[in-house]
Amino acid sequence: MKHDTSLVATTVPRMAMSLEKVAIALDVSPNSVLKMVEEGLLPRPRVWGRRKLWRVVEIDAALAEWPTDGDEEGEAGEPGRWVAVR
């Protein structure tokens, strides 16, 4: 039986994304995503074998910690390194 992947794509929530998909979702280049990870603005990916995947909920949580446009650096505090809540 052949599966209809278009139905699956619309009904199954995405839990993780590849580097390329994170870059597309953030409208930046893959190198920019890697730089954000290096700077602590985004979480490090999860690893399964040679695959690296970013959890969508962790990306969302990290973005929620970024300052909003117009915030003065001293006013909202320095953005810290993103840390997963366990």
Rank of each mutant, 00 (worst) to 15 (best):
2 K>H: 14
2 K>A: 12
5 T>K: 13
5 T>L: 14
6 S>D: 11
6 S>Q: 11
6 S>A: 14
7 L>C: 08
8 V>W: 15
9 A>I: 01
9 A>D: 03
10 T>M: 15
11 T>F: 13
11 T>N: 14
12 V>M: 14
13 P>E: 07
13 P>R: 13
15 M>A: 11
16 A>H: 04
16 A>C: 04
17 M>N: 05
17 M>S: 10
17 M>T: 03
18 S>V: 02
19 L>N: 01
19 L>M: 10
20 E>A: 10
21 K>V: 03
21 K>Y: 05
22 V>W: 11
22 V>T: 15
23 A>V: 06
23 A>M: 07
24 I>H: 09
24 I>R: 12
24 I>C: 04
25 A>Q: 04
25 A>R: 11
25 A>T: 05
25 A>F: 07
25 A>N: 08
27 D>R: 15
27 D>H: 13
27 D>S: 12
27 D>P: 01
27 D>E: 13
29 S>M: 01
29 S>R: 07
30 P>A: 05
30 P>N: 05
31 N>A: 10
31 N>G: 05
32 S>A: 08
32 S>K: 08
34 L>W: 00
35 K>N: 09
35 K>G: 00
36 M>D: 05
36 M>Y: 15
36 M>R: 11
37 V>D: 02
38 E>Q: 11
38 E>A: 07
38 E>H: 13
39 E>S: 09
40 G>V: 04
42 L>H: 04
42 L>V: 00
42 L>P: 01
43 P>I: 01
43 P>E: 02
43 P>A: 06
43 P>Y: 04
43 P>K: 05
45 P>F: 06
45 P>M: 04
45 P>D: 01
46 R>T: 13
46 R>V: 05
47 V>F: 03
52 K>Y: 00
52 K>G: 00
53 L>F: 09
53 L>I: 02
53 L>G: 03
53 L>T: 05
54 W>K: 11
54 W>E: 08
56 V>Q: 08
56 V>D: 01
56 V>W: 10
57 V>K: 08
59 I>H: 03
59 I>W: 07
60 D>R: 14
60 D>K: 13
60 D>N: 11
60 D>F: 08
61 A>E: 10
61 A>S: 13
61 A>Y: 03
62 A>N: 05
63 L>M: 15
63 L>Y: 05
64 A>V: 01
64 A>C: 06
65 E>D: 00
65 E>Y: 00
66 W>F: 09
66 W>P: 04
66 W>D: 03
69 D>K: 12
69 D>G: 02
70 G>C: 00
70 G>V: 00
70 G>H: 03
71 D>C: 09
71 D>T: 06
71 D>Q: 09
71 D>F: 05
73 E>P: 08
73 E>C: 06
74 G>F: 10
75 E>P: 00
75 E>W: 11
76 A>F: 13
76 A>V: 14
77 G>F: 10
78 E>H: 08
79 P>F: 10
79 P>S: 04
80 G>M: 08
80 G>P: 03
82 W>Y: 15
82 W>A: 03
82 W>K: 03
83 V>P: 06
83 V>C: 09
83 V>T: 15
